[in-house]
Design a protein around this nucleic acid. Sequence first.
DNA 1: TTGAAAGCGCTAACAC
DNA 2: GTGTTAGCGCTTTCAA
Lengths: 352, 352
Amino acid sequence: MAPQRTNMREVADLAGVAMSSVSRVLSGHPDVSPAMRQRVMAAVESLGYQPDMLAQSLRRKETRSVGFVVSDISNPLQSQIALGAETALRAKGYSMLLTNSENDPALDSAHIRLFQQRRVDGLLLSLAAEDDPQTFSLLSSAATPIVLIDRELRGEAGRRASSVLSDHRTGMRDAVGHLLDLGHRRVGLILGQPMRFSRERLEGLKDAYAARGLQPLYTVVEGQLEPRHGRAATQALLDAAEPATAIVAGGNQLLNGALAEIQQRGLRVGADLSLVSCDEISLTQLYQPPIAVVRRDTRALGRHAAELLLSQLEAQEEDDQGRKRTTREPEVVLLPTEFVARPSCAPPADAA
Amino acid sequence: MAPQRTNMREVADLAGVAMSSVSRVLSGHPDVSPAMRQRVMAAVESLGYQPDMLAQSLRRKETRSVGFVVSDISNPLQSQIALGAETALRAKGYSMLLTNSENDPALDSAHIRLFQQRRVDGLLLSLAAEDDPQTFSLLSSAATPIVLIDRELRGEAGRRASSVLSDHRTGMRDAVGHLLDLGHRRVGLILGQPMRFSRERLEGLKDAYAARGLQPLYTVVEGQLEPRHGRAATQALLDAAEPATAIVAGGNQLLNGALAEIQQRGLRVGADLSLVSCDEISLTQLYQPPIAVVRRDTRALGRHAAELLLSQLEAQEEDDQGRKRTTREPEVVLLPTEFVARPSCAPPADAA
DNA sequence: TTGAAAGCGCTAACAC
DNA sequence: GTGTTAGCGCTTTCAA
């Protein structure tokens, strides 16, 4: 029996009270007599009444929902962030709308617009690009709080949004430092799109060389965070006149491609070639030999993003027109990364 | 400038027309003159008006949103399903609300109820349990179409919901058949919760033994789909009086645990012990030696689930009270699995 | 403490 | 083809 939905009117009628009284009981208004509460609750029970959040949202001008834009939820990095974020949001009574941008900045902005039409209370964004004009203008004039996840925007958009960032630079500095200390000089760094995480990783690598006063014999290969690029870049690094003796993959997708190429060439990780990846996955832990990583707590990244957004949400007040207005300034949270040395790193093969 | 949101009233006033005309233009009503369309669109542009989907939903009695309950989005299996589902939903203009049940059946039902209050048009469920009474009663009387993902419910709930199922049995039969043909007789099967996928896998294993007229020397270890269980089960299988010579892990989490134990014991996969896993992940492909798997197209699983739901949604009509009513019967879609033999499977070590 | 009434922003009859 | 009107289901003044 697909039950026709009961509305508040019916509850009020059955209880013989006004709708406003039902509303007060259900929303925990202080000024309700125990008798009233009883009558109403009895009616609610007997009808199996469930309030319509749509109508509540329209009236209250808040949906208790948050839009989350990722490029690809099937990427372990992003799904772990999503888990952390959803759990934190749910704990505060918020629901999460999720969408995939498929690495297309045009979809980023389309989804932001859609979420705005759905009147989400806030936005959690892991954008496909840091310089899309459409996205920029949408965010510059957004009416809700926004938290960027590991992204950095310039201009007005950047000034309006909060962000949760990972300290890729430090982790990468330690990773490359470890390789240099093992005797490597020609480190190959495979990066993804030109976004903050790529820039910071490059800086970290430079830091490591600079701190040791070494010539910049490293090679950087930029591209997309995809296995194809990981593989092509690895080919390039190994086929160079002066081949890299150690490779650092800036993400799990790149690692997949790199490993595929390494295996096809019959190279032994941690012997013929040293290898480091960014972000822990089951593969890095269980591979033989285990693969060194620049690690971070991805779930905490999502959790912090959600909590930052929630704190901005709570800091809102309504102006005289009944519209929400953010009173708090955007904030930036920096989360640590940590290099974990593993047997995939060893002295270079040609070190006599 | 956080822009106060324009509403349809303002657009109508600016264009000097009635609200209903604005509505008609925006919703593509056939009977509108080009002149009217122009006037309205000009006003819409100049105000940057974006319709309020909340109000639309309340009025139209549909939200164009779907609730998706998973146990843990950070699990590669589920995030791939989610990607497939979200992409298909988005293509038809639907948004996805995502929540994690954390493998807790009580959260399953709580989230279903919440989604119902949010008036989602349909539900996509990868439930934590197939026998929770709360979930059962909610689903038995649900007002919207429901698609179960790789789950099977009995009773009224099962009769009301559609489902997309994987043919685990065939894949497992081939996997175990392969092991038996290599000479293994004591196969250890590690399973998760007592749900359809576990039952089917067990049946597949039995099929393989039966087809060859072999004694049932296999061992089955049931538990949770978690690394801990994978590890403990592997210990048990290897420490038995008659240790298993081949292990089949019923999922990627179980594989993680199994591999950890195998490595700690210094056993060589594909030599001292044969290994098969269920569902492809980067680890199974890139491990050395590569790990045989019972494979399925997880993204297609999500896509089919979404498309099945969408087809049920399209088959709805409104009754005289303006309520939606499903006209189509629930459907079941069965998707294939495929065993992929790899070097992790070899004749048993004791085979002279 | 409770009820009556207005209205959130939109759509869909219905009338012209 | 366009305007007027009556709500969708709820919350929230405002009075009583």
